[in-house]
Design a protein around this nucleic acid. Structure first.
Length: 329
DNA sequence: GATGCACCTGACAG
DNA sequence: ACTGTCAGGTGCA
């Protein structure tokens, strides 16, 4: 099978920063051949880049099994459209980088090395349960937990080069009562209850339709609605708003973002033990003031720069302000 | 309404 | 090999 191509240069899309920046936990990079393999939309994808294109192959898919209307279009443009939507390629990113650079000198210096960082447009269900797993947790363990969810409760898509690939399970499956005990046995800890409980709440409130209504709501309303779910607080709620509900002003404030904010913009917040709700909204509002209505996307670029900075600084001497970070993955 | 603390597990540093 | 620490937070007292 040959590679399909979408015109898109490296300034507009940088795969490593976008796929490995903590947005999705399902992409794997093969260094030897410079290719990515991953799953979204019940489809297994291989991706790579040249200077002028994003290249892709569809390794396997369940789409033609789930709907007849899809089947007719599967040979055509459907995969290209899915990919363009996933990477939000309709946004001219370099224009936004210019805009954010003009508004903020820190962004201006950070973005030089970290161009092409895109906000993925993810599926709400996968996004929500992945980030329930993310709380108080390492990226490496989050990835294995997400894979476990897929392997045990998702539909098999295909085998490829010795690995079996699974779609992310639907909410109905995760809502069944025995799930909590099963997930505990699988090592999910206290998150097991959150997953089962949230799933049944979502089913009760209308499943996919409920997510659709959240997209149509104002950001702040959608945020509060999500926080009614068990195991979803301010931070995870903002992750979901930003990454799968198209509320690009949503801005998740985690420990990293707090550090960045206190270090560079809001010095009076330095040295606090934890992020209170008041601090949380102060930090979010500051960035929204600074960058405007796509502040969440802009802050993700800063966040990536921060992650990578620590990876590069691995051999440097840790200080109190910059403690030794654990290796990601 | 604000603050403090327990929470599952395993990856990683010492 | 063998620990202690702690991670992209949240619920509950």
């Amino acid at each position: 099978m040959t590679w399909n191509k979408i015109k898109c240069n490296r300034r507009e899309l940088q795969l490593v920063g976008t796929l490995n920046g903590g947005q999705s936990f399902r992409w794997e990079y093969n260094k030897e051949i410079d290719e990515w393999i991953g799953v979204f939309s019940k489809t297994v994808w291989k991706l790579r880049q040249d200077d002028e294109h994003l290249q892709y192959k569809v390794i396997g898919t369940l789409l033609n099994k789930t709907s007849k209307t899809t089947k007719q279009r599967c040979d055509g443009e459907i995969f290209k459209n899915l990919l363009e939507k996933y990477f939000r390629l309709n946004f001219k990113l370099s224009d936004y980088y210019k805009e954010w650079s003009n508004k903020d000198s820190l962004f201006q210096s950070a973005c030089k090395q970290f161009y092409g960082i895109r906000m993925l447009y993810q599926e709400p269900v996968e996004n929500l349960f992945s980030f329930i797993c993310s709380q108080n947790n390492h990226i490496s363990r989050i990835s294995t937990m997400v894979e476990k969810l897929c392997k045990h409760y998702g539909d098999k898509i295909c085998d490829h080069e010795g690995t079996t690939y699974y779609a992310f399970p639907d909410v109905e499956k995760l809502s069944s009562p025995q799930i909590e005990a099963e997930l505990r046995d699988l090592g999910f800890g206290y998150r097991a209850k959150f997953i089962q409980k949230s799933a049944s709440q979502i089913v009760e409130w209308g499943g996919e339709q409920w997510f659709k209504s959240l997209q149509e709501m104002k950001y702040k309303d959608a945020r509060l609605e999500l926080m009614k779910l068990c195991g979803i607080g301010p931070k995870v709620s903002d992750c979901i708003c930003l990454m799968s509900l198209n509320h690009l002003e949503a801005l998740p404030v985690d420990t990293h973002v707090y550090q960045i904010a206190a270090q560079n913009y809001l010095p009076h917040l330095k040295g606090k033990k934890s992020v209170t709700e008041k601090m949380y909204s102060e930090i979010g509002d500051h960035f929204r003031m600074l960058y405007g209505d796509m502040a969440g996307w802009a802050h993700t670029v800063l966040f990536c720069a921060d992650l990578k900075k620590f990876q590069q600084d691995e051999n440097s001497v840790p200080t109190e302000e910059n403690p030794r970070k654990r290796k990601k993955k």
